[in-house]
């Protein structure tokens, strides 16, 4: 019996976001009195034994360059083989685009119950139940997984578990990788920006920014915070900012540790995309803006005066560190 954690690679390196997923999977393994194994699919030049720091006792690597294309059919087949050879009873993914492509098919293939977007450790005292967000962050559901093998995708920034220290044993796997039926014509990376769904901090602007020519102060703040940048729907629709920055019910849903809303009133559709953020800061000159009700911190004032001073204060804080 073991917990199998799927690590994510980007350009041949482990993604930092995998660390918290491994820590989470390892915590489940400790809870069940079993071992945590990590599965790395593809070519990776990092020291995989270092994943022991996050509680993994073993890292399996399938060093096959064709796995750079994430084909759900191929991935589900390969992961299903590893689940059966390692006797894994729980499979853990980060809830990211890879998991969204692969975990559902794996669930159907193995007949293993899946909880997508878990936000807490499971309760294993009586069966196996786990909490996830529903209604776009407006509620939680506790879901019982009824099958022997369980699959969980973990919502980013939802569970924090401290590293436990240790060195993992690394084992190369020789599993045959089926051929893919798809051809990748091109990949376009979001250049130089922090991808929104992975950002720890997000700075977002609304109509209160008054026009695209004023975005400089927002970008400066984002740069000081090493933050991703986002916008409200009206801003995206008016082409002040690119569409992929639109966060909200019908845009991107994010759950950063810190969300800055500059000149956004906080319509319910916008909140549905950001209310899973840990800390929300709202800056708006209208004290009646509904967003203040959902915020943790706020400043009622002119963002054109406030934001540059925030940027300066953050730079000062970094300089002191």
């Amino acid at each position: 019996m073991s917990v199998l954690i799927i690590a994510d690679l980007q350009d041949g390196h482990l993604k930092k976001s995998s660390n918290s997923v491994i820590s989470y999977g390892s915590a489940i393994a400790r809870q069940l009195g079993s071992e945590a194994y990590v599965l790395v699919l593809g070519t990776c030049s990092d020291d995989l034994s270092a994943l022991g720091n996050f509680g993994a006792s073993k890292v399996y690597q399938l060093d096959d360059a064709s796995l750079a294309v994430i084909d759900p059919k191929v991935y589900t087949q390969v992961i299903a083989d590893v689940v059966s050879s390692t006797g894994a009873r729980v499979v853990v993914f980060g809830n990211n685009p890879t998991a969204k492509a692969v975990a559902p098919g794996l669930s159907a293939k193995l007949g293993a119950g899946l909880v997508a977007g878990a936000c807490a450790l499971p309760d294993t005292s009586n069966g196996f139940t786990i909490k996830k967000t529903v209604f776009s962050g407006k509620a939680f559901a506790t879901v019982s997984i009824l099958t022997e093998v369980k699959i969980i995708t973990l919502q980013p920034n939802s569970v924090t578990i401290a590293p436990v220290g240790g060195i993992a044993q690394v084992e190369k796997l020789s599993v045959s990788v089926p051929a893919t039926a798809r051809k990748v014509a091109g990949v376009k990376k979001t250049e130089g920006e922090v991808p929104l769904t992975e950002a720890d901090v997000v700075v977002s602007g609304g109509r209160g920014m008054k026009g695209p020519e004023h975005w400089g102060i927002l970008l400066d703040l984002a740069k000081a915070l090493k933050a991703g940048t986002a916008c409200s729907r009206p801003v995206g629709d008016a082409h002040w900012r690119p569409h992929h920055e639109h966060v909200g019910q019908t845009g991107v849903q994010i759950a950063p540790n810190l969300y800055f809303a500059l000149g956004i009133s906080g319509a319910i559709q916008h909140l549905a995309g950001v209310n899973r953020s840990k800390v929300i800061v709202v800056i708006n000159k209208d004290p009646e803006a509904p967003f203040f009700k959902a915020a943790d911190y706020g400043i009622v004032g002119d963002l054109f005066e406030v934001v540059p001073r925030l940027t300066a204060a953050i730079e000062k804080l970094h300089a002191e560190k």
Partner: peptide
């Protein structure tokens, strides 16, 4: 937007 699962299509494809 109520279940926030996004898993039906992947299961059906399998």
């Amino acid at each position: 937007i109520d279940t926030n699962n996004g898993v039906l299509g992947g299961m059906l494809a399998e």
